[in-house]
């Protein structure tokens, strides 16, 4: 019986140690759960888009036949490659090379910024607005909602960049950077689906 107790307390102590110091693990788990849930909002918008498109044969606003795909494609390439850039930044952080991390994070932010700028340019050149029928509504809803996520991602990256200058910031791991990076990959994947739906499937 003594042995049982000793073992039990031993196990207990280890696991508790593990549990109480694994706040970062919890956060990561929780963040992934949150992203999965968030993706359902996009999924519902995509479903709406597909339903509207398939049930309304002529749903473009008058005078609109389709969308220009070239500039958006460049935009897409920039955004998708920024996913690799932020990955590199993360690797640098793992190796405790802070300046490499900062430079690549900055590069990611620049690429995200370029994407948003390209989006703004495209929006301003389009002949239809938010209120122009179902297509107008769906187009601006999807790109706008995604754009908000890109903006959020850039703000998170700014925050991470700023915090990298605080000494001792990474003593307890770098969950913040991991989450930011995860969020950025998520935003990218969503964009790929979105691009396929809006630009490729015309």
């Amino acid at each position: 019986m003594t042995a049982e107790r000793v073992i039990s307390q031993d196990v207990e102590a280890t696991v508790r140690q593990h549990q109480e110091h694994d706040a970062a693990g919890n956060s990561k788990f929780g963040f992934i759960v949150f992203l999965l849930s968030e993706s359902v909002i996009f999924l519902s918008f995509f479903t709406g888009y597909i339903v509207y498109k398939t049930t309304n044969p002529d749903w473009y606003p008058p005078g609109v036949t389709g969308l220009e795909t070239r500039e958006p494609l460049i935009n897409t390439l920039v955004l998708v490659s920024s996913s690799f850039v932020i990955y590199v930044a993360e690797r640098y952080l793992h190796d405790k090379k802070l300046w490499g991390f900062r430079i690549f994070l900055l590069a990611t932010m620049a690429m995200g910024g370029y994407f948003l700028l390209g989006q703004a340019v495209e929006w301003s050149s389009l002949p239809f607005g938010f209120k122009d029928g179902l297509f107008g509504g769906m187009f601006y809803l999807l790109t706008g909602f995604h754009g908000l996520h890109v903006l959020t991602g850039i703000l998170l990256q700014t925050l991470m960049l700023g915090r990298s200058f605080i000494s001792g910031n990474y003593d307890n791991g770098f969950f913040g950077v991991e989450a930011t990076s995860l969020f950025w990959h998520f935003v990218d994947v969503i964009w790929i689906v979105l691009y396929t739906l809006i630009y490729v499937w015309q």
Binding site: L36, S37, S39, V40, I41, S44, F145
Partner: peptide, 14 residues
Amino acid sequence: QLYGLPALTGGAVM
């Protein structure tokens, strides 16, 4: 809640 609520949120936004 995790898989359902976002769909309602999507509809509510629209």
